[in-house]
Design a protein around this nucleic acid. Structure first.
Lengths: 386, 386
DNA sequence: GCGCTTTCAGAAAGCGCTTTCTGGTAAGGT
DNA sequence: ACCTTACCAGAAAGCGCTTTCTGAAAGCGC
């Protein structure tokens, strides 16, 4: 096996498509003997439809029609055009297509906080799968949780005239941000753009794939109560995220239904480290420890699990732990985490489907509710001493 | 000056999803009050530069220059243009820009096997971060390991005239595929496109971020031998992937250096389930079990770990297990996995930097070697009975 | 005050397509 | 044989920008 090429000369084994005589009108350029320093010259231009038409001996319009099949074209001509396109290695210029006709645009935008996060990666994976089926290209944007960047990306996607913009992840509960986002989205939609989101955006009237965060958290709370727990703490994320607010509220509701008051809420970043830190903080606090901890996302729960282990707290013997989302990793840790399962990939498929469906009509928006299923795994058990 | 006016009547009040939400996946619609006029109008056209120029009372050319700052424009005119653009909510049409000037294109393409896979998600995350810094938009493509789809995506990205195409993940060692890929890439590069890859592509002469798979696997083998192991098995992936071939070869080399012959290679899919299945197969086989197993990727190792646990094989007491890549999850499982650590995010940043750097000159390609670090964790220990 | 160079706004030529619109030709009707 | 249709290829008009190219006005030295 040859070593990877470091500074290797390109072997020009590919001589270009025009090795045979031109069929149609003369293309004098081709005849030009290749000057030795062509290498350094301006890059070879792209093959245009015009060149294909000339090669096939038809008009530009016919070439376009032959390739797109929009109108009937005589079979022999169509054949000639196809052959010419093949021969020249023609690839249409997507920008020109998009400019010439609105249907030419085959891209959608996907905005999430971080593809590196398994939650978003799961949803993105679903979006990619669905997009592939419809021959769409996805422009991905990671905001790294900066609201300003999110707005900027919407603007860029507007510039790209993306068919649809998909916003994954809950919105910020912040008036200024909401206003700015609305200001971006409203003209976009008005101009025919589609918008769909995963998770609730307080002020936005757009098609939504809505995980039942509240109900799911409440159901989880009920399950944990059923295990015998009475003493709970929550590891929460940034309160301005609607997802956090909803899950926390739902969990409280679920406890309240059993007459239990949530004892403690520790706030942390929406990351593995945030969960770790929050758990440490919880353990460091004095007083009786809760018997059960709910982390508002699995990512945080994983961090919390590590923190508990480091502190010598056995899960679930000393303390039960539950998360939310059911990202793949929670099945791999020991003990596997109890969580509220969300069909992430499917949600990704749904959100793009929602966006691409025929518009729901002026001023209408759809909400696709996604039920979360409580999955009890090894990380939860009866409270100690029961 | 009137505000953009296009029906600002939209009431920015959002009632939110009904809290009496029934559980289950269901679709509901909510209605937004809309001004009667707006209802069945054709979509409002986008604001064009022409409109801005008119609003500002200058020519199209001046408006363009004022906004892009390419040439000096009198201050008062520039101010007027900026104000007009703001007022109208002008967003340039990226397609038109890209068509009119090659520099107008601010997109790069990223092709990977599956963003849902933590290995690719990690690299993609790095790419996204670097792209954001340069104000580039990333078009993401997931091939789901179908070679044909990979080729098709390159073609689509060519059509988009992406500034650069990034290929993440090893190439297929398949002549037909290589030829087809070359045929796509060669004209692209010739036309000024940039290509960079992560992992070796046998036939491709392009800038490469090259994890030292071979050396890393060899070093891992040496470390495992040092722990006392003499009896090894490898859980391998599809042999046509260069990454698999290299890691397997490297591991063999490392063992050979200690005079050890690899006993067993079990092949599985390049996924968690593939690793699980391969491990099961290994255990099901008769004869003495190896004392140490190397899975060529962490993703497979995680599956293998689950399989071992299910089979009652203790890790590392009964059998040691090691992986490759150091994806985040391996630190969370118990025991944490020994692996060869690759700086995934950084690799993502590097590959886009490599692609965007000034061309290396005709026919030259760079290789950025990334060393992997052997990280011994709890999943490996002395062989049983030592 | 007269030619000279600068400076900078506007007209216009594309960029590479799609899609009318136009018109020629063949088929069909009487 | 004459007139309608139908069909389909080609000419041409954009799509929304950037960037020459052009020329008017202003600045300058003598």
């Amino acid at each position: 096996m040859t070593a990877p090429a470091h500074g290797q000369e390109v072997v020009p084994k590919f001589r270009g498509p025009a090795t045979t005589a031109p069929l149609g009108v003369e293309l004098s350029e081709r005849e030009t003997p290749v000057h030795p320093d062509t290498r350094r010259r301006a890059p070879a231009a792209h093959v245009t439809l015009d060149a294909v038409a000339r090669e096939a001996g038809v008009s530009l319009a016919t070439a376009s029609r032959a390739l797109n099949g929009t109108t009937r074209v005589r079979d022999d001509l169509r054949g000639r055009v196809r052959a010419a396109a093949d021969l020249l290695g023609y690839i249409p210029n997507a920008h020109a297509q998009a400019l010439a006709s609105p249907e030419g645009n085959r891209t959608v935008g996907l905005i999430c906080h971080d593809v590196g996060d398994p939650y978003f990666a799961g949803i993105a994976s679903g979006v990619m799968r669905a997009a592939a089926e419809q021959d769409l290209l996805v422009m991905l944007a990671s905001t790294f949780r900066e609201p300003a960047r999110e707005i900027a990306y919407v603007s860029m996607l507007r510039a790209q005239r993306a068919r649809a913009i998909l916003l994954i992840g809950s919105g910020f509960q912040d008036r200024a941000w909401e206003r700015a986002m609305d200001a971006e989205l409203e003209p976009y939609v008005r101009a025919g753009g589609r918008v769909a989101v995963v998770s609730r955006h307080r002020s936005m009237r757009v098609d939504t794939v809505q995980p039942e965060n509240r109900a799911g958290a409440a159901a989880l709370a009920a399950s944990l109560v059923a295990l015998g727990h009475r003493d709970f703490a929550v590891l929460s994320g940034p309160p301005e995220l609607t997802t956090v607010a909803d899950r926390l509220a739902g969990f409280r509701e679920g406890l309240a239904a059993a007459g239990i008051t949530l004892r403690r809420v520790v706030r942390g970043a929406f990351t593995r480290e945030g969960g770790h830190a929050a758990a440490c903080q919880l353990l460091a606090a004095g007083g009786a420890r809760p018997t059960c901890v709910f982390a508002v996302t699995d990512v945080m729960a994983v961090g919390a699990l590590a923190a508990l282990r480091e502190a010598g707290v056995r899960v679930p013997e000393d303390m039960s732990l539950a998360g939310f989302d059911d990202i793949p990793v929670v099945r791999e840790v020991s003990p596997p985490l109890t969580t509220v399962a969300l069909p992430l990939t499917e949600m990704g498929e749904q959100v793009i489907a929602l966006a691409l469906r025929t518009p729901s009509g002026a001023g209408r928006s759809r909400v696709l509710r996604i039920e979360g299923n409580v999955v009890l795994r090894g990380s939860t058990g009866a409270p100690p001493g029961s």
